[in-house]
């Protein structure tokens, strides 16, 4: 309940925020939005499926360069390159992840770090003569929405946060489906998940490809916002930041938004303390690990509205629903009232 109230308040705040911000702070908020998007997409891979993937910037880069190349070479409109950027990143993810998806934990982590470095170095070396080497690509056009040119910070603000809104809805739907449950099962125990009939490697791969698709589309937004992209924007540190945002968040979408703000917004707010801010930051991270290792806001329980109806039917059918065979077993049986309240305390999440 408190989460719902908080989410609505946050949503309203995000809608009106740029009205009270100057261009600089609006830009900061755009960056927070971009990181929020990247983190939401990584959350599917890392938060939901528990795949330790620290190379998300690689997919982000593939998307951004796809847009930059299509736009500067062939003058494709930015929005048209967006699905292509996503698809290219997804295809790239499919190719690189297929052979490594069975690796576990730290092993996979190291390989994904390798991927992001390989991508950065390939871009630096002007791969296929398309990426412009260390200078990157400049002169990327502004996106156009019919006759409306998206130029100002405030335009980008609503574009990026609009995309955040759409992503929240879609990823929330995913979380509340058999797909999301399968990912959670894999995270908890992949042998048991496979033994229950979940195609573990297929779902892991699907999570990977979906996350990459999203990161690729965010790459489009980034390229359009910056108009100039260079390999250094997609280095290993970017991956680490996105990774840390997801870990800090605890895995819920609201948590991701809050922790994206903490990671990107807070350093800007603390700019006056320039030298000390990273110190404060490191200390905060350490304290978090000690006192709240599960992250800021772990996902709440999923709601199943049908369940109460079914339970009601079972109780009204005369026999004690738990009386059956466990009753014979003398197993400790919760009274129906308790079970119902337990159901109701289950909170929704954004």
């Amino acid at each position: 309940m408190t989460r719902t109230v908080f989410s609505v308040a946050l949503g309203a705040l995000i809608c009106v925020l740029p009205l009270f911000c100057n261009a600089y702070w609006t830009d900061v908020c755009v960056m927070i939005g971009l990181y929020a998007l990247l983190s939401l997409s990584l959350n599917v891979i890392l938060g939901q499926a528990g795949i330790f993937h620290m190379g998300h910037a690689a997919f982000f880069a593939v998307g951004a360069y796809t847009t930059a190349i299509c736009n500067t070479l062939w003058q494709w409109p930015i929005f048209l390159t967006m699905p292509l950027a996503g698809a290219t990143a997804a295809l790239f993810a499919l190719v690189v992840a297929r052979p490594i998806i069975h690796l576990r934990g730290d092993y996979l982590l190291i390989v994904t770090i390798g991927i992001v470095e390989i991508v950065r170095i390939a871009l630096l070396n002007d791969v296929f003569g398309l990426t412009g080497g260390s200078n990157g690509i400049f002169g990327i056009a502004r996106p156009r929405f019919f006759d409306f040119r998206i130029v100002k910070s405030i335009h980008f603000y609503y574009l990026v946060w609009g995309m955040v809104g759409i992503s929240l809805v879609l990823f929330y739907g995913l979380w509340r489906s058999r797909f999301g449950r399968a990912l959670n099962c894999i995270k908890a125990d992949d042998v048991a998940a496979e033994g229950c009939g979940i195609n573990v490697s297929r779902y892991k791969l699907a999570a990977f490809v979906l996350g990459a698709f999203w990161a690729g589309m965010v790459g489009t937004l980034y390229a359009a916002k910056m108009t100039t992209i260079a390999p250094e924007s997609f280095n290993f540190m970017e991956s680490v930041i996105i990774f840390a945002v997801v870990i800090l968040s605890g895995g819920s979408q609201l948590g991701v938004l809050i922790s994206a703000f903490l990671f990107i917004g807070l350093p800007e707010l603390l700019r006056e303390f320039s030298d000390a801010r990273m110190l404060v930051f490191g200390l905060a991270m350490m304290l978090m690990m000690i006192w709240r290792p599960q992250g800021l806001l772990p996902p709440g329980p999923r709601r199943y509205p049908v369940v109460d109806r079914i339970l009601g039917k079972l109780h009204s059918s005369g026999q004690n629903a738990s009386g059956g065979l466990a009753g014979l077993a003398g197993a400790e049986v919760e009274t129906p009232v308790n079970a119902q309240t337990a159901a109701r305390t289950g909170e929704d999440r954004p």
Binding site: R178, P301, Y304, V306, V307, I310, L311, L314, A321, S322, G323, G324, L325, A326, G327, L328, A329, A331, V333, E334, T335, P336, A339, A342, A343, G346
Partner: peptide
């Protein structure tokens, strides 16, 4: 349908009331 079916299975083994735990 899946939730209904799973609740039936839970009822079968006598754990329906504890489905949210």
């Amino acid at each position: 349908a899946a939730v209904a079916r799973c609740m039936e299975e839970l009822d079968f083994v006598g754990l329906a009331d504890r489905c949210h735990e």
